[in-house]
């Protein structure tokens, strides 16, 4: 008798579970994104590859001082308005995408892009000098400094509070 009830309840509960699966099969839609062919839209604040527009950067070294893993190396020359960087090296191998440097940057020259394909074929390329190997200046892509140059679409009601805050 006991065995019979065990078998019965094992059978019925499994059937119930299969009913959930069947219902999902009939009514549910696949949510998988076929990644290399279709790409998800990243939210506005997405933290992708860190980029610096050295034409805006004033070489204040705030970012390198706040970085918890010391992955930014800066050399700058000039005084006051003339001050500009001669070397601004980011080590992508060490960077942990924490965005602390972006928060302290006074000129908003430093931003996290929406580029998340962080594959490199050469280890030396992971240490990038943005003076020798600059990115397209932000103003060409997006006239408002302080917003992300690479977003696909901005969220409603977020463009003010997002990047430039704090």
């Amino acid at each position: 008798m006991n065995i019979l009830s065990e078998v019965w309840s094992g059978f019925t509960t499994t059937l119930k579970g299969m009913w959930v699966t069947g219902r999902e099969y009939l009514t549910g839609k696949p949510i998988t994104v076929q990644y290399p062919y279709t790409k998800r839209e990243m939210p506005y604040r997405f933290r992708g590859m860190l980029v610096n527009d050295v034409s805006i950067c004033n070489g204040c070294t705030k970012c390198s001082r706040v970085c918890p893993v010391n992955c930014i190396e800066i050399e700058a020359e000039g005084k006051g308005k003339e001050r500009h960087v001669t070397k601004w090296v980011l080590n992508y191998q060490k960077c942990c995408w924490c965005e602390l440097c972006v928060e302290v940057c006074p000129d908003t020259s430093l931003l996290m892009s929406h580029d998340y394909e962080t594959v490199f074929t050469d280890r030396n390329k992971m240490i990038r000098d943005f003076v020798a190997d600059p990115i397209p200046p932000f103003t060409d892509v997006n006239p408002k400094p302080g917003t992300n140059p690479y977003p696909k679409k901005e969220n409603e009601g977020d463009s003010e509070s997002g990047r430039a805050a704090a």
């Binding site: 939210p43 604040r45 942990c96 995408w97 965005e99 509070s161 805050a165 704090a166």
Partner: peptide
Amino acid sequence: EELSGGRLCFGYMRIGGVANDIT
């Protein structure tokens, strides 16, 4: 992710509050 920009390592809290306002 909408709030913090990350999916696993959020890093959203700051001393004295949070990094960005809620949207």
